[in-house]
Design a protein around this nucleic acid. Structure first.
Length: 810
RNA sequence: GGUCCGUUAGUCCAAUGGCAGAACAGCUCGUUUACACCGAGCAAACACAAGUUCGAUUCUUGUACGGACCACCA
């Protein structure tokens, strides 16, 4: 669109521009180019819901980075990924189609998921296009930079291939362990998928007996239904009250089981009565305790969330019912001393919000404990923006205490590419080919392996040694003739897919030459809340594949919150919909607001619609300043510059230098602030006013050279503003620049001479102008009229002529 | 419980060891050949306490409040 056709900047003006950008593939990645590669491992948004404001803003930032790096001469790889695996998709499908995988079957359920995904994926890409995000491509395909989907056969095949290799390296094992169990979703969860919520609960003071003395002891517990699984009673060694109980035996109430009493520093004398019953599966620290003490855990909760026969009379009851019942039983027998209401930090599933139970099940694990130090070393080599955000990662690595459970008992995810025989043999799928073992049989040439850690029972629980994985033949071998191969039904944790995103976009295993050239990935931008999942797992997987750090830079962003600073959530009803913002204010206003509102890497960004709409004004200011400038032609040759012009040229040059430095460090906030100020306060309000007489030069008061100097400077400054703002607001700057014959989309970042100059002169000029304007106002003189008796200060003598004309000084 | 961050005008965000500066909102006045999505101007703030200092909003410590992350309670 031509500049003069645009009255005001608006979403309507944008629509034709973004449409063109989206379809033109103009930012296509050229894998053959000799330019240095800058790659961005974007966080694939879940497509179970429309793009939310947090994603919208963070993608604006990524686009700032991408556009700046292009200007700096990089070949930028900026792919759009769509995350389509996992529980959120399944839950959305369950809700939307009122379907259940357990009731309606796996095939039907997967179809429902696919249907849901088809409806939402195009919408996601469309929103990003409207924001002006310059993805390498908006099309799917096999080229570098193409839109990718985490549930595509190609992507899933790489997840499977890397798994198979890890299996062969002996880094995968199956173990029956106590897992976090989500009884609603019927699946095991990793620690990182658990949240803690304050839930009111009762602290029950239960009476136990000491066998040897007949003495009564009081033990407080929130989980009385687990008394049947108690393995030991402990108290703190420093706790004088219980010292004489050491080594004695307690008799559990109701169940009448004998349980050893010992001292252990895990017990906190301050809590409850200071004496604790250690149950298997009360929580994960209990598990560690059982291992250390060589106790065999008793599992009383089954995977449907009900108590089993170990729980005696509680058999068949759900955990909560069982708790109520045993409390009643205890009350009846006068074994409950008292109850206190407390707020209990309870582990709940992040996905389904149900309370986590700890249940023993066989699951696949990826070894990670032995790599903790290596991961730390690797992360030391990565630049974190901001630096402090690395601490979150360090803390998490320190706290990782078990290997990564990678199998899930769900459906819409990457299948684990294995088959089993009843003899404990395992068939590995062919690497590189997507496979779904739950509905196919293995080919004859598939390898048969034996893994030492497979299908364990509770009694092997403490054994830590692993037999290595070993190849023992192929499916077609005579010795396996009578085997019935059963396809694995479990799927991977979705982080198994997500944690190789940087490998996938760099064509790992697909294009070795390119991968070698492009690895490691230049930037991982992501939210702080997924440091312990996405970032950590990616570092781990990247290390296991390449032994190297997989990123050069990591940029961590805070959250987008509502205008009052609260997290947005459906229940609070404070959700701000970016689609609505786009419709009302357009992508450019959102982008400029994102940059100027705050430093997203340091603080949460408060989102106020009012303030977004206010930035439309800045866009129009820019438009008008440009219109004014373009009333005059830029002199073909740079004229000798007047002192005033030179001053402002120096100012914009110094601003250019500042922006370059800041952009280099992913800081767009400070530059945006400075540019906005320069545009409104300095360039428009003062410089333009001071040179108006000189550029118009209707009374021929100035020489041609003097007038040309102003014209040239006007254009020079405007161009620099356009270049500097382009990464932030590309549509409006490119539209204006085009009018001047400049193609910003392929422009280089301006190089400027680093010049010393008297910055304070600008300040003085502006003060002088303000003084005169104020004086005229105070004495009721129109700004255009002449004023007498004003003296121009000595240090402003260089600008006398302009000032005289500007203010009509006599 | 631990760690980190924050507390500045009605709102929001800056800067600074010595007059605290924008933006949005408010008020007053004005429209000069880019712009009424305009211009000029007005009013309005350093959470509290102690310390260091000639001098503290700024540095230190503590208190209060808010936020985030981590851990975790039987």
């Amino acid at each position: 669109m031509k500049l003069k056709e645009i009255k005001n900047w608006s979403p309507e003006v944008e629509s034709s521009i973004v449409e063109k950008w989206k379809n033109s593939e103009m930012f296509k990645f050229d894998a053959k180019s000799n330019k240095k590669i800058y790659s961005i491992d974007t966080p694939p948004p879940y497509v179970n819901a429309p793009v939310h404001i947090g994603q919208a803003v963070t993608y604006c930032y990524m686009d700032f980075f991408a556009r700046y790096k292009r200007m700096k001469g990089f070949q930028v790889l900026f792919p759009l990924g769509l995350d389509r695996n996992g529980l959120p998709i399944e839950m959305a499908a369950e809700k939307k189609f009122n379907i259940s995988p357990f009731r309606d079957g796996r095939d039907k359920f997967i179809d429902a998921c696919k249907k849901l995904l088809e409806e939402t994926s195009t919408e996601t890409a469309d929103t990003f296009a409207k924001l002006g995000i310059s993805f390498s491509s908006y099309k799917e395909g096999n080229h570098v930079g193409a839109v990718y989907k985490t549930d595509s056969p190609e992507y899933r095949a790489i997840t499977q291939e890397t798994f198979i290799e890890l299996f062969k390296r002996g880094l995968i094992y199956e173990d029956s362990r106590i897992n976090n169990w989500d009884s609603k979703l019927q699946t095991t969860l990793a620690d990182s998928e658990i949240e803690y919520k304050d839930i009111p609960s009762d602290f029950n003071y239960v009476k136990w007996k000491v066998k040897e003395t007949g003495q009564e002891i009081i033990i407080a517990t929130t989980r009385p239904e687990l008394i049947c699984t108690c393995g030991m009673i402990i108290f703190n060694p420093k706790d004088e009250r219980y010292k004489k109980l050491d080594g004695k035996t307690a008799i559990s109430p109701i169940f009448g089981k004998e349980i050893k009493i010992k001292s252990n520093s895990m017990a906190d004398p301050e809590k409850g009565t200071g004496i604790v019953m250690m149950c298997s599966a009360g929580d994960l620290s209990d598990i560690q305790f059982f291992r250390e003490q060589n106790l065999i855990p008793k599992i009383a909760i089954e995977k449907d969330g009900k108590m089993n026969s170990i729980a005696g009379d509680l058999h068949g009851l759900k955990v909560r019912e069982a708790r109520q019942k045993i409390i009643e039983m205890l009350k009846e027998k006068n074994l409950l001393q008292k109850q206190e209401s407390i707020i209990h930090r309870t582990p709940v599933s992040e996905r389904s919000n149900t309370e986590i139970e700890f249940i023993q099940m066989p699951e696949y694990y990826l070894k990670q404990l032995e790599f903790k130090n290596e991961i730390k070393k690797i992360s030391d080599k990565i630049n974190f923006f901001p630096k402090e955000s690395k601490k979150i990662l360090d803390d998490w690595i320190d706290s990782v205490s078990i290997d990564w459970p990678i199998s899930r008992r769900r459906f819409y995810a990457t299948p684990i590419p294995l088959w089993h025989s009843s003899e404990g043999e395992i068939v590995l799928a062919e690497p590189g080919k997507y496979c779904e073992p739950w509905k196919t049989l293995p080919d004859k040439n598939f390898e048969v392996w034996k893994n030492g850690r497979h299908g364990r029972t509770p009694k092997d629980f403490q054994e830590k040694s692993l037999l290595g994985a070993k190849k023992i033949g192929t499916v077609g071998d005579e010795k396996f003739k009578n085997r019935k191969w059963k396809g694995e039904e479990r799927v991977f944790d979705t982080w198994m897919d997500s944690s190789i995103s940087e490998l996938v976009i760099l064509k790992y295993k697909k294009d070795n030459e390119f991968f070698k050239k492009a690895y490691p990935c230049s930037l991982r931008p992501q939210g702080k809340e997924i440091i312990r999942t996405w970032l950590y797992y990616t570092l781990l997987r990247g290390y296991l594949e390449t032994k190297k750090p997989c990123f050069e830079d990591v940029w961590i962003n805070q959250h987008i919150v509502d205008s009052k600073g609260y997290k947005m959530s459906k229940s609070k009803g404070n959700i701000i919909d970016p689609q609505k913002l786009l419709k009302n204010y357009g992508g450019e206003a959102i982008r400029f607001w994102s940059a100027i509102e705050g430093d997203l890497s340091r603080n949460d960004l408060k989102c106020s619609e009012e303030r977004i709409s206010a930035e439309l004004k800045t866009l129009n200011k820019l438009l008008n300043v440009s219109r004014f400038t373009m009333l005059f032609d830029k002199p073909a040759k740079k004229p000798k510059l007047e002192k005033l012009d030179e001053l402002f040229v120096n100012e914009i040059n110094s601003l250019t230098y500042f922006c370059d430095q800041s952009y280099e460090n992913y800081d767009f906030y400070r530059p945006a602030q400075s540019l906005r100020k320069f545009l409104w306060e300095i360039f428009a309000s003062h410089y333009l006013e001071m040179i108006k007489a000189r550029v118009y030069n209707q009374k021929k008061y100035f020489s041609k050279q003097e007038s040309d100097s102003a014209k040239w400077t006007l254009h020079y400054i405007l161009e620099k503003i356009l270049f500097l703002l382009y990464p932030i607001i590309p549509q409006i700057t490119a539209t204006i620049a085009k009018e001047k014959g400049i193609d910003l989309l392929s422009a280089e970042f301006p190089k400027v001479p680093k010049s010393k100059f008297k910055k304070e002169l600008i300040e003085k000029l502006m003060n002088f102008n303000s003084d005169v304007w104020k004086k005229k106002k105070d004495s009721g003189i129109s700004l255009a009229n002449e004023i007498y008796g004003i003296k121009i200060p000595k240090e402003l003598k260089d600008f006398e002529k302009d000032l005289k004309m500007c203010h009509n000084l006599r």
